[in-house]
Simulated assay, not measured.
Amino acid sequence: MINFNGDIVASHTQLSIFNRGFLYGDALFETVKVINGNPIFWEDHYFRLMASMRILRMEIPMNFTMEFLQDEMARLIDAEKLEGTAQRIRFTVFRDAAGLYTPSSNNIGYVITSNTLDSELYHNKEGDYEVELFKDHYVNQGMLSSLKTTNKMVNILGSIYAKENGYANCILINNEKKVVETLNGNLFLVKGNVVKTPPTPDGCLKGIIRKQLLLILEKSEEYSLEESSISPFELQKADELFVTNVIQGIQSITKYRKKTFDRKVASDLLVKLNARVRLGI
């Protein structure tokens, strides 16, 4: 089942072929982890969505409060009888209007979908996790690249490249050949006691878990935080590399080209991240 503009309907319900999200990628989405009915880091998700809608000049309905959207997610979970489980909720907002490139209005519609997750807390999964640099296409620097729009062609092509070549993930670079992020999350690099991640002006997503780790690292006495550009040459000199997103939490990279990496700092930060998750549930 899905929540389509407030109506709980069958999951095979079809959007119009004239939907602007389909025709032009004129849509945004948030992926939220819900544990026992509680969307974790929900305030961060909500304000990121509102800021993104303003940037794209979408008309934000008066009833689009944090409480309303949380209730809309809860209604879907209740309808599917999934209470007491961990859920991956995708909240997609699209401009619901006719027109070509120029929309006839800035009104919006939304769709909410859900999938059950195996675990409530985050785990740094064991096993090989090899990555490679994706150089066929670049992420453009600028504000639009930091938004979660449905225009993800670079990520799609990078994912196909990774699958065809046996990689778990790929690292994306921008038009100035600076490291931006991975296909499905933000990238962190560890060298000694310095933990470094690309700044958002380089084109990376304003990730929810990225923000949580920045808050953790800013208060840490063990590690020094740097938000600064990363050159591809730095990757093989790092002690650790890891990926973050709201569904996986933290995933250590084990190999990049001929270099293998430790996972000590990532595992340490994961404990601190899970402590924040527990506070939210």
Rank of each mutant, 00 (worst) to 15 (best):
S146H: 08
V195A: 00
E130C: 03
T92D: 09
Y110R: 06
V265W: 01
L144W: 13
E59L: 11
F22R: 02
A10W: 08
S145P: 00
I209A: 01
A162P: 08
Y129A: 07
I17C: 00
L270C: 02
L189Q: 06
E222P: 00
F91A: 12
R263K: 12
S114W: 10
P198D: 03
V194L: 11
K33H: 10
A98K: 13
V194C: 11
L214M: 14
G207I: 07
E83L: 15
S146T: 14
E59H: 12
E80D: 13
I216K: 11
V9T: 06
I60P: 11
L28W: 03
K206C: 06
N274M: 08
A162M: 06
M62C: 14
Y122A: 04
T13R: 09
S114D: 11
S229N: 08
A238L: 04
I108F: 03
Q87R: 15
K272N: 04
A79S: 13
S220A: 00
E30T: 12
T13A: 10
E222M: 06
L183V: 10
L183I: 15
S104K: 09
N169K: 04
K272C: 02
K258P: 00
M73V: 15
F29Q: 00
R48D: 13
D262K: 11
H45V: 07
M58D: 09
S231H: 02
C204D: 07
Q236C: 11
L23M: 10
L183T: 11
N175H: 10
D136G: 08
L241A: 06
V246P: 02
L235W: 01
V243T: 08
T102H: 13
M1P: 06
